[in-house]
Design a protein around this nucleic acid. Structure first.
Length: 607
RNA sequence: GCGCCUGUAGCUCAGCUGGAUAGAGCAACGGACUUCUAAUCCGUGGGCCGCAGGUUCGAAUCCUGCCAGGCGCGCCA
């Protein structure tokens, strides 16, 4: 309200003086109370264009502002301070009018108007369905979901998507791991492959399969077990056993490297040591597919319990059937964006800023993950999304330039793909860094975190920091500190207001009075100013993809409310004051509830 | 070697498209419940904003260089 009138005055003035290229005037909340309710450094910024000293400009601007009768009513005084700041101290009436507006906005207070922007596809989590979600995935889930809510609330059309990496070697290893655990439950000695998944959850999956299928697959897997044992016996008699010293060394390198190297060696050695018997192959295919389904089901349930639901689940495997992938590559070859060199097919990503061209089809004829990703993103575009947002872990940031180049080629224009890199979660135990491995079943799962501190605290905790900040998580500390978690501070403010509302007498309704006593205290004024800034916080947080700003704002708002609550009674004071304060409570409750909702946290009526 | 992220109070971090004396929570210490929920409030102490230059009326914020930590740099996914 105030800022619009100030800008109008400035525009008129600039027109009269013939100044061009003036900056936009922004009002900000001064850190110091003595500097009024709002302030602007505008006169310092315009000094150059106007070729006059800032303080003189400030004096003249002040005159012009006060000449506007509407504006004069809103301010108690306008001061000029320091090198040329203009400080506004608002009148009582300004607060009443602001509150009237806020109250009238109702439940959708702070919401952005629907924007005429392209539909957004927001993809996140997208993990291999071969292990439980760990806290890193939880962070991306909490962040992505909060961002989705924020974008929607600020006026965008968003669909969320989970890309299921259900194709490739990792899933083969998983299928064989489940098959092994299944066999073991029948007494067949088939060990989990060395490059397989050792975690106990694999046993759970196997148990479900056993319940569904009975001993249907035991015969086939017995063939595999015998073959594996034969190989093991032969190896024991030979000299293929590695020296012990190397093992200690291998342990010192990062776990992820071990996984990858193990995988490559395995492949170099001709794939799985399991026999190529058709019955065995069929069994592996079955365990792989069914295991994947069961893991996905569990994941979906876990995410839903965490408050995260995806609009679309997209399976990578669907890209590899029906010549889908080949069709994309053929088109890229035809348009000259892709080319053959050696026995491989490459995409000329260097034409769009990447530092080298990338392989689509390997010389062995197999498509790369990148090729599938291109088909996938083309599919997104064909589904009508004009803007694609992907949330990736920091360990994938090297992949960004090629993917952006690919989408630029597909879409015919730059800027369609936006990649948000989320930094990783470091797990600490008693201050010591702890390594994680999905394969070995050593990790802190999202489920563990939730069990330790609950969904609300976990979600708040995971989004309260900027996504490009590495998060240190000590689960013992988190458990111990959950009582001090700021989420309860915010929720408590909400519950307190709910309690007031329950005690409101029948004849008292929320409405903004105009008397001089209304909103006279600094506590009420501070709260109203905070509430007024909510819509800009929403817009800002959405534009910057920064839901943590909502978390920070919620804490500030709760603090303003708790102080207000301490100093100002709502019930049992004179009627005009009571109904005005009731209005203030109601708006505060709406905004707190909205903030918590944007973060995926519940807003309790009582605690 | 190259690229991305980070470096702010004892700890965890906000603030980063430049504004006045740099903030919050936790931890430490001292206070406040006969009144709408004390999971609250009030107060005290605590800082070469990694370092050095530069731009500017003004720099935690922008630019350059350096130092430190994390993550990447494959015809892996």
């Amino acid at each position: 309200m105030l800022v619009e009138r100030v800008r109008k005055t400035i525009a008129d003035w600039a027109a009269a003086e013939g100044w061009d290229d003036l900056p936009v005037c922004e009002l900000e909340r001064p850190a110091q109370e003595a500097h009024g309710d709002y302030a602007t450094p505008f006169c310092m910024q315009m000094a150059k264009a106007a070729r006059q000293p800032p303080r003189a400009l400030a004096e003249r601007l002040r005159e012009r502002l006060l000449a506007d009768p509407d504006l004069a009513q809103l301010v108690e005084k306008i001061d000029i301070a320091g090198p040329g700041f203009i400080n506004f101290t608002l009148s009582g009436q300004a607060f009443s009018r602001a509150m009237e507006q806020l109250l009238a906005e109702g439940e959708r207070i702070g919401a952005g108007a629907a924007k005429d922007h392209p539909r957004i596809n927001l993809e996140f989590v997208s993990v291999n369905p071969n292990g439980p979600l760990h806290v890193g995935h939880g962070r991306y889930a909490a962040y992505g979901d909060a961002l989705c809510r924020l974008l929607r609330f600020s006026g965008h059309d968003v669909a969320t998507e989970f890309y299921i990496n259900d194709f490739g070697r990792q899933m083969d290893r998983f299928g064989r791991s489940v098959a092994a655990r299944y066999s073991q439950s029948y007494g067949v000695e088939l060990p989990v492959p060395e490059d397989g998944y050792q975690g106990d959850y694999v046993k759970d999956v196997a148990a479900v399969v056993r319940q569904e299928a009975g001993d249907r697959w035991v015969a086939a897997l017995t063939i595999a077990a015998e073959a594996v044992q034969a190989v093991a016996t032969a190896a024991a008699e030979g000299d293929a056993v590695p020296a012990e010293g190397t093992e200690g060394l291998v342990d010192a390198v990062p776990v992820e490297d071990q996984e990858d190297e193990a995988g490559d060696e395995q492949e170099a050695a001709g794939g799985a040591e399991w026999p190529a018997d058709p019955a065995v192959r069929e069994a592996i295919a079955f365990f792989r597919a069914r295991g994947c389904e069961l893991m996905l089901e569990a994941m979906r349930t876990e995410l839903r319990d965490f408050g995260v639901e995806f609009d679309i689940w997209f399976s990578e495997t669907t890209l590899h059937v029906g010549g889908r992938l080949q069709a994309v590559i053929d088109r890229l070859l035809a348009s000259g964006e892709a080319f053959r060199e050696g026995d491989a097919v490459w995409l000329r990503t260097t034409s769009r800023g990447d530092d080298k061209d990338r392989v689509l089809i390997r010389s062995n004829g197999q498509p790369t993950y990148f090729a599938a990703d291109i088909a996938y993103h083309e599919d997104k575009l064909e589904r009508g999304f004009g803007h694609l947002i992907n949330i990736w872990g920091a360990d994938h940031h090297g992949y960004v330039p090629r993917m952006k180049a690919a989408v630029e080629i597909l879409a015919g224009r730059p800027g369609v793909l936006e990649v948000i890199i989320g930094q990783l979660v470091n797990l600490l135990e008693e201050g010591e860094l702890r390594q994680m491995s999905t394969r070995r079943g050593e990790m802190v799962t999202l489920a563990e975190l939730i069990e330790a501190i609950g969904v609300d605290a976990a979600r708040f905790f995971l989004v309260m920091r900027s996504q490009d900040q590495t998060l240190d998580l000590d689960i013992a500390l988190a458990r111990q500190q959950s009582q001090e978690n700021p989420v309860y501070y915010v929720q408590y403010a909400h519950a307190r207001i709910a309690s007031i509302l329950r005690n409101v007498p029948a004849d008292l309704v929320a409405s903004v009075g105009s008397g001089a006593e209304v909103f006279a205290s600094p506590y009420e004024k501070a709260l109203i100013k905070r509430l007024e800034s909510f819509s800009s916080v929403v817009q800002d947080a959405a534009a910057r993809r920064a839901p943590h700003r909502v978390a920070a704002y919620a804490q500030e708002l709760a603090a303003d409310f708790h102080v207000f609550y301490k100093h100002c009674r709502v019930l049992g004071v004179e009627p005009e004051l009571a109904s005005s304060r009731l209005a203030l409570c109601q708006v505060t409750k709406r905004v707190i509830a909205r903030c918590l909702d944007l973060l995926g946290v519940s807003a309790p009526e009582s605690m």
